[in-house]
Design a protein around this nucleic acid. Structure first.
Lengths: 292, 292
DNA sequence: CGTGCCCTTGATCCCAATCAAGAAGGGTGG
DNA sequence: CCACCCTTCTTGATTGGGATCAAGGGCACG
């Protein structure tokens, strides 16, 4: 069912390029050559997992950490009534079960949405790395915090956006996450999620996802078929989504350039008429989800 | 505006009890007496912040970390249209801006909902601690992962629950979070959030929050007035919320007892008629939010 | 003793869920 | 090679949860 691949190909995909994982950690931490070699050695092997299969389950205590090398996976929870809520997507370079390294037990499931390649690193090896390589430790810590930032963004996306905006926002997020691992093409990207998956991620019904996708298409923003998302109007897509990539932490070593990545629209400050210094803990609280 | 308090009272609240912060870290990490003393020394001073004031803002790069000692705060984002989405509540013992210690820049705001007491620990002092005290480092890491777990739960709460369930779920969560810091009474707890705050947290309008609260009350589940939440029927409240405290990581040092905290209802496994080993990546995907 | 803030209630509207059912691949086995 | 089935995508009709609009009441605070 799962075929094991020799370790050699884990970190060099033939042409000498580092895998998405290293590229992502690099982006997070600024690793030294020695750090990179150490990570290479910590990865024991790779395996291929078919689509619609769980990588780790709620309650599991994995003894190794799974890194998504290829494919698409998702974190999800199953509600008491049996419905699924996808809580985030996992793209190549993401660590699926990092929380378990530190917390022990998984509080959610991670499952594949398409055929995936997974690299495994034992907890023991990683703990060793963390204790001896502070930069790796920090990169991993940053990884978990970046994950949390995505979750926060999802809360606000689901809580306060219309279906139209939610989809737009999700497509923007995935675009920005695929870019640093080299999987975003000029006009879009491959995205192996069904409309049902999108619904489960955004708290919508399949039927509605379908209709809203058609509207996004007829509005000339995107096209989505044959597992390919084509972005037709990048500007407007970000605009309707109210999307700002700041929460997808860019390279902290280039923190000087960070500000340059903040679009103007991003300065979501409350400008109160009375010029109060209270900036937002009590903001306008009109109801959610304005129409498109 | 903010009055400084002498450091001595930071870790002993008069009667020799550790503050919520230490109690919480303790719960997360199992600190040695020496660890605890080191943390004590890292905290420079305390201050009092009035209600409806920001502690840190989006885009800030704080040079110290703020620990909530007393009061109620929230993480929140401001949407492009000016509306607010509360992304999580912060109760005593929580670290408001831990992400900034590792990532640098804040991707969201933290504001007070009531008058708060805040303890400050400089980034420099904390980095020192992290490098020299592995247990403290792990406790902090766990703290940020526990935070992420809460965010995940919020996504599923907002994405797949009715208003009735969302409120019930939130009240359960706060109860479980206040307990380890000694702020939960037998029949409820103090909760300084307005109905507007609840709406902004759960993606609901104030009007609807009001009506649903009345229903919860008339159903004999809770009472909520004068900043006090009284839980009338703890069993049923958890039940309608589909609440399981597993995501609020209990003491990992007692991981043996962990399973005991999982109510039976919590085994959200997909039982497929065909007995397939695919457990859930593709679950039933009927639409969201069934009625109460 | 006004003036906000918060809670409350009623009426109406609308976004999105639900129900129902057909069409279009894609794979499998006879 | 075709019949069959399963998954995914579509489309139409209906329903409903919750937003929005509007306005009154309690209460604390300057």
């Amino acid at each position: 069912m799962t075929m094991v691949i020799k370790p050699a190909c884990v970190c060099d995909s033939g042409n000498g390029m580092p895998t998405p994982f290293l590229r992502k950690l690099e982006q997070l931490g600024g690793l030294s050559p020695e750090d990179r070699m150490a990570i290479r050695l910590a990865i024991s092997h790779q395996k291929v997992v078919p689509a619609h299969q769980d990588i780790v389950c709620y309650g599991d205590k994995p003894k190794a950490v799974s890194v998504l090398v290829n494919g698409l996976a998702c974190r999800y929870k199953i509600m008491p009534d049996g419905r699924r809520q996808i809580v985030s997507f996992q793209v190549p370079g993401d660590i699926c079960d990092l929380p378990s390294l530190v917390l022990g037990r998984m509080d959610h499931n991670v499952g594949t949405l398409a055929k995936c390649t997974i690299a495994l690193a034992s907890h023991g090896a990683l703990r060793e790395l963390i204790d001896t390589h502070p930069r790796i430790r920090d990169a991993l810590w940053r990884h978990s915090l970046a994950d949390a930032a995505i979750q926060r963004e999802w809360v606000s996306n689901i809580g306060r956006h219309s279906a139209y905006q939610r989809l737009a926002h999700l497509f923007c997020e995935i675009a920005f996450r695929l870019e640093p691992v080299g999987l975003k093409k000029a006009d879009g990207y491959e995205f192996f999620a069904t409309q049902a998956d999108l619904g489960d991620a955004l708290g919508l019904s399949v039927v509605h996802v379908n209709r809203v996708l058609q509207q996004l298409r007829s509005d000339g923003l995107i096209t989505f078929s044959a597992n390919t998302l084509a972005i037709r109007n990048w500007e407007r897509l970000q605009d309707v989504a109210g999307f700002s990539p700041a929460y997808l932490q860019p390279d902290p070593s280039k923190s000087g350039e960070y500000g340059a990545q903040l679009p103007l629209r991003d300065h979501y400050r409350i400008e109160r008429a009375n010029g109060s210094r209270e900036r937002g803990a009590r903001a306008r609280t009109i109801g959610p989800k304005p129409g498109p």
